[in-house]
């Protein structure tokens, strides 16, 4: 049938290890991103006590606010795995709900970060105020950019599910899993940032 043949997918080409190339590529990206964020966290820890004339971590960090943001990002990871479970079970309604919910939680986190940055700048912590401020904004800002890319990918999956480009097939579930891997990586980076930068500030 013409309609059926039009929807026939290309055969997957797993690597010699039985893992799809896309998944292997995503894990290679994640491995390299570990070095990327490791460099920024190292830089931050080196400069955290070099405050110049600007405020320090204990003067500006709003732990209750950041704790709520952290909780939202953690729960977005739960939303992501529930979206993956839904498409693997063939439940596209649940998949759309959890994918959109995860994207909205990501957007909420990003909004919180924009608000936090605005407050910090008003309190005198600009990008070039001190080595501490520069390393803080670069680290958390790059993390925010990663969250932004993640939100875009999630929204793309959500839209594609309506147009039929994402369907409950093994191949498309794999694509969702790969986006999920990226999303969870962004989450674990924040798990480290929340503790090392916010909860363990320098004396």
């Amino acid at each position: 049938m013409a309609a059926d043949s039009a929807t026939v997918e290309h055969e997957e080409h797993p690597t010699n290890f039985g893992v799809s190339n896309e998944k292997m590529g995503m894990w290679a990206l994640i491995g390299s991103e570990c070095l990327f964020f490791g460099a920024f966290i190292t830089t931050y820890l080196l400069y955290v006590t070099r405050l110049g004339d600007g405020p320090g971590p204990r003067d500006i960090f709003d732990i209750p606010f950041t704790s709520v943001s952290t909780f939202i990002l953690l729960m977005s990871s739960l939303g992501m795995v529930l979206a993956l479970a839904a498409i693997q079970e063939g439940d596209m309604r649940k998949f759309r709900t959890w994918t959109l919910g995860t994207a909205l939680m990501g957007l909420t986190f990003l909004s919180g970060q924009v608000y936090e940055f605005t407050v910090f700048v008003e309190e005198g912590l600009g990008l070039t105020t001190s080595p501490f401020s520069t390393s803080f904004y670069v680290l958390t800002g790059f993390h925010g950019v990663h969250v932004g890319f993640g939100v875009l990918m999630l929204l793309a999956l959500w839209v594609a599910s309506f147009s039929g480009h994402i369907r409950p097939t093994k191949k498309h579930a794999g694509a969702v899993e790969n986006v999920g891997l990226y999303w969870h990586f962004v989450d674990i980076v924040w798990i480290v940032i929340f503790t090392v930068i916010y909860l363990i500030p320098a004396e």
Binding site: V19, K23, M24, W27, I30, G31, C34, L35, F37, G38
Partner: peptide, 27 residues
């Protein structure tokens, strides 16, 4: 659990751990 490394091929764990080790060495 969320990223399924507990269930996936060990090669993926090695890719991830390699990145972590290089980051820690850099630190």
């Amino acid at each position: 659990w969320f990223m399924h490394l507990r269930y996936d091929h060990r090669l993926l764990t090695r890719l991830f751990v390699a990145g972590m080790i290089i980051a820690l060495v850099l630190f």
